[in-house]
Amino acid sequence: MSQQQLGRIQWGDLTFGPGTPYTVTTIEGIDDLPEIRADDVNRPDQHGDYTGPDYTGPRTVQLGLGLRGESPDDLRALALALRDATQPQRQPAPLQLLDQGTLVYGKVRRRSLPYDAEYLWRLGTAALEIYCADPYLYGLDEKSASTAAFSPAAGRAYPWVHPRTYGSAGTSGRITAVNGGASPAYPVLRLDGPVANPSIEQVTTGAVLTLDATIQAGETLLIDTRTRAVLLGGSAPRRGWVRAGSTWPVLMPGSNEIAYRGTALPGAPGQSSLLTVTWRDTSL
C-alpha cells in the first residue's frame, strides 16, 4: 500500500490523517524490516560463515505530522493535545493504522513540536519517534475460535464474548485457526473447567502442550504462548503445571488445526471443558 493511501492513524484518543487537523506527512518503519540480529560464526580456515536463524531487533516508527488550526489559539490547542498524548509510558500502547488494518505496540521515545514564528498562525509541524520492543505487525481484528474438549459426553453451552470475531464451533474437540499474516502468531489459550490433565495439540506442526492439573467448574486458566505465562483465574501463576517435554503451540501462516483433549471430572456428567484460542494475524 502506498504512503498516499495510508489513511488514518490512531494513537490513544487522537486520530491523524484525512478528515483530522493532523496531516500525516511521513511515516517510516512500518513496512521496513527491523535490524536483523544474526547468529553467524566464522568458518575457521574457510571462506564464509556458519549461519544460524535470523531474528529481528525492535522496530522504530518515525511519524511526521502537519498541524492545521483555525486560528493561532486553535493551533496551540492542537499542539498541547499532541503533547499530552505523547507522555513517557510505563507500558507499550497500540499505534493503529486504521485503513491499513495494522497495529504495532510502542512507546513514544522522541517528540518534536518546533516553534516557527513565520508560520505559527494556523500551520505547524510535529515529529514522533515510537519505539516498538515487539517488532511484529498485527491485524486490527482480534480473532477467536472455541471448542469443547473431545469427549463422548454432551457439550456445555457458553456465552460468546464480544467484540471478538469468532470462528466456527469446534467439531470433536478440533478447530481451525487461520493466521492471515506472514509470520507465526502467538495465541492466547483460555481453558474453562471442569477438566483434568488438558492437552492442546497444534496438529499442523505437531506441537503439544499438556498440563498436569485439574481445573474445576467455574475456574479458568489463561495461557499466553508468547510470554509463556500460565495464570489461574487470569492472575495466579501456575507455570509449574506445564508437563516436561511440552511444546508451546504457535499459529503458522495459513490454516492451523488445533485439537483439545481432557479428562472429565467425576460428578460433572455432560459438562465439557471449553478451549478458546485468541490471536491476531501477524507479520514482520
Rank of each mutant, 00 (worst) to 15 (best):
K143R: 14
G180P: 04
L128P: 06
G106E: 07
P152K: 14
L123F: 14
A117S: 11
T165F: 03
N179M: 09
I175G: 04
S151D: 13
A117N: 09
P152M: 13
P184K: 04
Y136M: 10
T176N: 09
A126W: 05
T102I: 05
S183K: 10
Y115L: 05
A185W: 02
V108C: 10
A154W: 07
S146N: 12
A153P: 05
K143E: 04
T147H: 09
V161E: 05
D116A: 12
V108K: 08
S146I: 00
G173D: 10
T125I: 05
Y119E: 05
R109F: 12
D134S: 08
P114Y: 03
G173F: 08
L120C: 10
Y186W: 13
S112K: 15
K107R: 15
A157T: 06
R174Q: 14
A154H: 08
G155C: 01
P163K: 01
A169Q: 14
L128K: 15
R109T: 14
Y119D: 02
E129D: 15
A149S: 13
G167H: 12
A182N: 10
G181N: 03
S168Q: 14
R190Y: 11
T171P: 01
V178E: 11
L120M: 03
A148M: 06
G101E: 04
G180S: 02
G181W: 06
A149F: 15
A169P: 13
R164Q: 12
T102F: 02
R156W: 02
Y158T: 06
V161S: 05
A148F: 13
A145H: 04
L103G: 04
W121H: 08
Y119I: 06
P159C: 02
G139R: 05
E129A: 15
W121R: 07
D116M: 10
D141G: 00
P114Q: 04
T147C: 12
A157I: 09
V104T: 09
L189K: 05
G155T: 07
A126N: 12
A148P: 06
E142A: 13
D134I: 04
Y105A: 04
V104S: 03
L140P: 03
K107E: 14
T171V: 15
S151M: 12
Y136Q: 08
A157P: 01
P114G: 03
P159T: 10
T102S: 01
T176E: 08
R122M: 09
Y158D: 02
D134W: 11
T102K: 00
L123Q: 14
T125N: 15
Y136T: 01
K143W: 11
C132P: 08
A177Y: 05
R190A: 01
L113P: 08
T147V: 12
G170E: 08
L189H: 03
Y105R: 12
A149M: 15
A185F: 02
A133P: 11
G124H: 12
D116H: 14
S183F: 09
K107P: 07
Y166Q: 08
A177I: 00
